[in-house]
Computed example of a mutant assay.
Amino acid sequence: MPGLMAAVWEQLDFKQPVAPGIKLVLGVVAWVAFVLAWHFAATADGTPSPLFPGPLQVLGALRELFMERGFSSDVLGSLRRIGISFGLAVAIAVPLGVLMGAFPLVSAFFNPLVSAFRYLPAPAFIPLLLMWLGTGDEQKIALLVLGVVWFLITLVSDVVRQVPTDFIETSKTLGASRKVILWTVVVPAALPGIVDTCRQMLAVSWTYLVIAEIVAATDGIGAMMMRARRFVHVDDIMAGIVVIGVLGLLCDLAFRGVHWLAFPYLRQRGR
């Protein structure tokens, strides 16, 4: 332990890269400390509270949900909604964001609209979506799309604007057309940042999931949590939160894996 603390102290400096081994150990220690603090807080009075169950109670609720109550179908339903909605958001935001970032004229037209819609809370559209699309999956997917698409457009356009101007000017000097420059210079240079931006915005989709599934939903993690609320099953609610966190972490790791495999030249640069 003293050796670990000494190694951590040596790396405690501004923008100092952390060794992979130390990063892993610190991550494990952080989670162990969190679970222990949760356990002691839940059992501070000597007996577990039904309104604040400890990690063991939540673990038991997870086992019961998956083994006895068919929670797997709820998880799959939520994953399907996240996958479809985020795919639609990416299909809208990435092309538009690339054009806005590459061509100031396009940005001048769309940016006032995108900037205004960014400040509108997606849940405010629920009454309209219910009237327009009903209570089925279409309404929930539309809400999830509205929750991320405006921010994704803005972030993608910002990434594209960061492409060095020298790349574009050199291509123009060599006689490349706008279309060639866009597809062979701007998009490849911005693609790593776009993938990383999509990874970050996927987390926002997960934060809107429960809101999307509390309205007239018969399946999904959010629907299970609302059923548990009616019967004051706080352990089930916390189990749903844990599942959302784990699924979100797995999605984040998947995006990181894609980024790591798709852009090996960034690893060679030590980035």
Rank of each mutant, 00 (worst) to 15 (best):
L174H: 11
I214K: 12
Q268H: 07
T207E: 12
G46F: 04
A108G: 10
C198Q: 06
G83C: 01
F66L: 11
F66V: 09
Q16K: 15
Y119S: 11
Q200T: 14
K23F: 15
P112V: 03
W31P: 04
I214P: 06
F263M: 02
L143N: 02
L56P: 04
G46M: 05
Q139Y: 09
L56G: 07
V159I: 15
T135A: 15
A108W: 12
M131C: 12
R161M: 15
M1H: 12
I241F: 05
T207G: 04
A190Q: 05
G3N: 14
V90R: 00
L105C: 08
G240C: 12
I92N: 06
R256F: 12
P123C: 09
G46I: 02
E64M: 11
G60A: 10
I214N: 08
G101M: 06
G70M: 03
A93V: 07
R256W: 09
F40R: 06
I22E: 00
W38C: 01
V75S: 00
D235P: 03
M131S: 14
F151R: 04
G101T: 09
A217E: 00
A30N: 08
I168N: 01
E169S: 08
F34I: 14
I92Q: 05
P55T: 10
T165N: 12
Q268I: 14
G175P: 03
V145K: 08
A61L: 06
P20S: 05
T165Q: 14
P264C: 11
L261W: 05
L250Y: 02
V163Y: 08
V163A: 11
V232H: 13
A203L: 06
V163T: 11
M5D: 14
V98L: 10
D74Y: 06
P123H: 05
L24V: 14
V28T: 07
M5I: 15
V32P: 11
H259G: 09
T218D: 14
P164T: 04
V215L: 12
